[in-house]
Structure formats: C-alpha cells, structure tokens
C-alpha cells in the first residue's frame, strides 16, 4: 500500500508574539515546526504501513528550509520525502496551494505508484483554514473524510477503510473505498518515539525537490497573481490592556470589590 501525507511547516504559533507598535508579528526566534496535526497524519500513515506493508511518502510545500520538516517526517518513519519548492508558488491562497500540491502528488504517484490513502492534518495552526486538504481531495475526485479520530478497519483486498470522524453532534463511523483523503485530529493517535534506525535512515536519505521544472505544474494557476483571494490588509487586533488586580484582606472583601465593579454591567443585562 502507498500512503501519501501532505504536511506544512509552520511557525510555532504558541511562540509568536505581537508587536503592537508596528502591528506585525514577531517571528524572530520562533522555531519552525511541523504543523502539529500533520504529525498525527504521519504517525497514522506509518502505523498503517507497519501493519499492512507498503510505504509512506510525504510532501511539503515551502521554502528550502522546509527540508527540516521533511527530515523530521522521515525520522518518524516516512520512506520518501518530497519538497515542493519554487518561487512561482509565493503568495498562493488555498485554491492555488491545493492546485500545486495536487500537481506534485500526481508527480509522486508517477514515481512511486498509486496512492491508497492521502493524509493531511485537519488544519494548519498558522492559517487555520482547514481548506487545503479538501481542495486536494476534490481535485483528485476521491472521497474526503475530515476530522478523523480513528482508523477502525482497513481491508486491503476490498480496498475499503472504516473511519471515525467528529461531527457537531458527536461522531460518525464512515466506510469508504480507497483511494480516499483523510484530514485528521490530534486524538487520532499518540506520537511514538521513533526507533533509532528511522533517524539514521532519515539522516542518510536526501529529500527530493519538486519544482515547476521537474513537475507538470502550470504557472498560470500558481502564486499570488493566480489566487482568487488576496490580502487587503493585515493588522493586529487591538491589544487588551492588562486590567486591574483586585486585592483585599479577605476573599469576602475581594468579591465585594469585584461586585461593585461589575454591577453596572450586570445592570445593563437586567441581572440586578
């Protein structure tokens, strides 16, 4: 079986801070990491490979430094890593990104054989759109199963797979044919501590670079110019000023003070 995972390298959103004076993000010193949801997608693919045999490929679109993410993916047990990197992708929105990744995936299929399950994280923590995965699935015209929390049963003979996904009211068990496209939640699995041979193989295996020259990608669908959505402006939300610490001799006195302060708000709501 062949599993293909789409990953993204993102700045660790938890460490990004805001410069309120310039209205920009301070990214300096913020480490680039594999999007956390994508790691669970890799883990899921590697476990299926361990169980059913085959191989795991992974592709990441980004600048040359995204190679680090691919190396890390390989050290988790991925067999083949592809970096999709080209200036023509700069400024791509989700539609243009899903186009580029789809084209890259077709190239990978050419080189490594047909894919049974495509994987991606449910969303990236920098953009939070959750749209690139569905976009790629649509272009491949394969069943899309989002918010997957469990892979219950895989039948390699019948080429079907049973999955559990989150929905607003609870969960659904879905059965689908393969190939299919899954976007996964963190709850899907716990990341395992990879064995040393994986790490050594990752250090030894080069990442293959895909670009507009060695892949059939049409530039007219790529980049800022060919993205339907454009960013008009980016700004930082107004800073919430640090408020007032309420102190007092006793809990009673603190609560009394608090009550006095919020009484006007409670009044507007008709609570008092």
């Amino acid at each position: 079986m062949h599993f293909l995972v789409f990953i993204k390298q993102v700045p660790d959103a938890a460490q990004v801070r805001v410069d309120y004076e310039t209205g920009t993000l301070i990214r300096e010193g913020v480490p680039a990491i594999i999007n956390p949801f994508d790691k669970h997608a890799i883990e899921a693919a590697v476990r299926l490979k361990d169980q059913f045999g085959g191989k795991v490929s992974v592709v990441c679109m980004g600048p040359p430094m995204a190679e680090d993410a691919l190396k890390e993916a390989m050290s988790m047990g991925v067999d083949k890593a592809f970096l999709l990197s080209d200036r023509i992708f700069a400024g791509s929105d989700t539609l243009a990104t899903s186009y580029a990744l789809w084209a890259a995936a077709k190239q990978i299929i050419k080189e490594e054989g047909p894919v049974d399950i495509f994987f991606a994280g449910k969303q990236a923590i920098d953009g939070d759109t959750a749209q690139t995965g569905p976009g790629i699935a649509t272009r491949f015209n394969v069943p899309l199963i989002t918010y997957v929390v469990d892979v219950k049963k895989l039948d390699p003979e019948k080429k079907t797979v049973e999955l559990v996904r989150l929905v607003e009211s609870g969960q659904e068990v879905i059965q689908t044919t393969m190939p299919c496209f899954l976007t996964v939640e963190e709850e899907l699995n716990t990341l395992s501590y990879a064995p040393l041979p994986y790490l050594i193989r990752a250090a030894k295996t080069p990442v293959k670079v895909l670009n507009s020259k060695n892949t059939e990608i049409e530039a007219e669908y790529c980049g800022l110019k060919n993205s339907p959505t454009k960013v008009r402006k980016a700004f930082t939300p107004p800073k919430r000023e640090r408020g007032e610490m309420i102190e007092g001799d006793s809990v009673d006195s603190i609560i009394n003070q608090l009550y006095e302060k919020i009484q006007p708000v409670l009044k507007t709501m008709g609570k008092v």
Binding site: P11, A13, A14, V16, R17, V18, T24, L25, I125, D126, G127, D128, P228, T229, K230, V231, R232, K233, A234, F235, T236, P237
Partner: peptide
C-alpha cells in the same frame, strides 16, 4: 471584505476576492 484571525488570533487579515 472578509476579516479572519490567523496565528491563533494574534493577527487579523482582511481578504477579498476581486475577480
């Protein structure tokens, strides 16, 4: 004009789709 938070709410972006 569509405004959305990114980076966990640290940055807001106003996006449009002209064509």
């Amino acid at each position: 004009l569509m405004t959305r938070p990114t980076f966990g709410g640290n940055l807001m972006a106003t996006i449009f789709c002209p064509d």
